[in-house]
Design a protein around this nucleic acid. Structure first.
Lengths: 200, 200
DNA sequence: GTCTATACTACGATAGAC
DNA sequence: GTCTATCGTAGTATAGAC
C-alpha cells in the first residue's frame, strides 16, 4: 500500500506510522479539528517529521481520504456490477459486506460525508457515484423488477437502513457491545425488509 | 424567541441578526470550521459586537445548538407520545413532518450528528432520546405489533430512510430541484414501505 | 451600542543542528 | 532521518475611543 523504499522495510516504518495515526485522527475528528500535533503524538514521532514525509497537512489528508473512498467503493462496485448475481443475492451480499466494513470502521460514514459537504468542489471529479450506479446491472435489475419506482429511492433506503445506525450511533445506541450485536442482527433484517419492499 | 429588550424592538435587532447569521454559518460549516469573522460578516456587523452580545463563540454556539435540538425534538416527541394516534398514523405523520422539516433545513442532520460526535460529553445530559423513546406509546405499539423484533431496529430503519438522503445529498443526488421533488415522492414511499415491514 | 486597534494564543510550517 | 527551536499567520477576545 505504501511505496516500499529500498531501505528499512520494517513494516512499522515512520512513514507508515504517520499514515496509521493520520487515518485514525482524521476519521475521528475531521480535517479542520485535527491538529498536526495530534497526529505526530499519536504516531509517536516528532511534528517536523510529518512535514518531512508529506509536505503538508493537506497532502497527508488527501492521501487518507483517497484510501477511505477506495475502501468504500471496493465493497460496492464489485457487487453492483456483477452480472452473475441475482437482485436478491446482490442485496444480501451488499448488506452483509457493508455492515462488516462499517463495524470495523464505524467513523467512516460521518467522516467521508462530512468532508464532502465541507468541500464539495474537491470531490466533483472523483465522485461519479451516480453515473457508476446508473449503468450498473444492479440498477438494471431494479428497473426490471419495479418499473414504477425510481431506483434511487430503493438504493437510498437500503443504504439508509444500513449506514444510518453508524452515523447516529452516539444518539440511538447505548454501549458498544450491544451495538455490534444489533448490527449483526440487522444483516438479515435489512435484507428481508429490502426484499419485501420490492415485492409490493 | 430572543429576549426582547425595552429598547429598539425592530425585529432585525443586532442581537437577532447575529443569531440568524450564526445559525446559518454554524449549521453549514460546523463549530471548528466557522470563524467568528464569518458570522460577523454574514450578519453585517462588527466582530467586536459578537463578543459584546454573547461573550464568546462557544456561548453563541450553545445557543444555536439548543435551538436546533429543540427543533428536531419538537417534531418527534408530540407524535410518538400521542396515544390517540394509531401506529400507522404515527408513521405517516412522522415521515411527513420530518421530511418537511428537513427540506427546509437540509444541513440540520449532518450538523447535529457531527457536533454530537465531536463532543459526546457535552450532550450526555441533554440527550436521553433512548429513554424518551423507550417509554413512548410508539414503542409500546411497536412491541404489540411485532413482539419478535426489537423496536430500535424498526426505528433506525424508519429514520435512516427519512434522514439519510439529506446526509448523503451531495453524493447521491444531482440538482436541488429534483432532490426536493424526490423527497416529496419519498413521503408516501417510506410510509408504505414502513407499514409492510411491520406486516411480515 | 458600535467602532478601531491590538493583545494573546494556537497552529502549520521551516531552519538548522545532529 | 530525526530532533529542537522558532517564524509567520490566523483566529478569539478585549481595551478603549466615540
Amino acid at each position: 500500500m505504501a511505496k516500499s523504499k529500498g531501505t528499512k522495510n520494517l513494516d512499522t516504518s515512520t512513514e507508515e506510522k504517520i499514515i496509521q495515526a493520520a487515518s485514525k485522527v482524521f476519521t475521528q475528528k475531521g480535517y479542520v479539528a485535527t491538529r498536526t500535533r495530534d497526529i505526530a503524538e499519536e504516531a509517536g514521532i516528532n511534528l517536523a517529521l510529518l512535514n518531512y514525509y508529506f509536505r503538508s497537512k493537506e497532502k497527508l489528508f488527501q492521501l487518507i481520504m483517497a484510501e477511505k473512498l477506495q475502501l468504500l467503493f471496493s465493497v460496492i462496485l464489485p457487487i453492483v456490477n456483477n452480472d452473475d448475481l441475482t437482485l436478491d443475492e446482490k442485496i444480501e451480499t451488499l448488506v452483509e459486506n457493508y455492515i462488516n466494513l462499517l463495524v470495523d470502521n464505524p467513523d467512516l460514514p460521518l467522516f467521508v460525508l462530512g468532508e464532502i459537504k465541507a468541500n464539495p468542489e474537491g470531490f466533483k471529479d472523483r465522485l461519479q457515484v451516480r453515473k457508476l450506479l446508473q449503468n450498473s446491472s444492479f440498477v438494471r435489475q431494479l428497473r426490471e423488477r419495479k418499473p414504477d419506482v425510481e431506483p434511487v429511492h430503493f438504493i437510498v433506503s437500503l443504504l439508509g437502513m444500513t449506514v444510518f445506525p453508524f452515523i447516529a450511533k452516539q444518539v440511538l445506541f447505548a454501549d458498544d457491545n450491544t451495538f455490534k450485536m444489533q448490527m449483526e442482527e440487522r444483516k438479515v433484517l435489512i435484507a428481508k425488509w429490502a426484499k419485501i419492499m420490492l415485492e409490493t
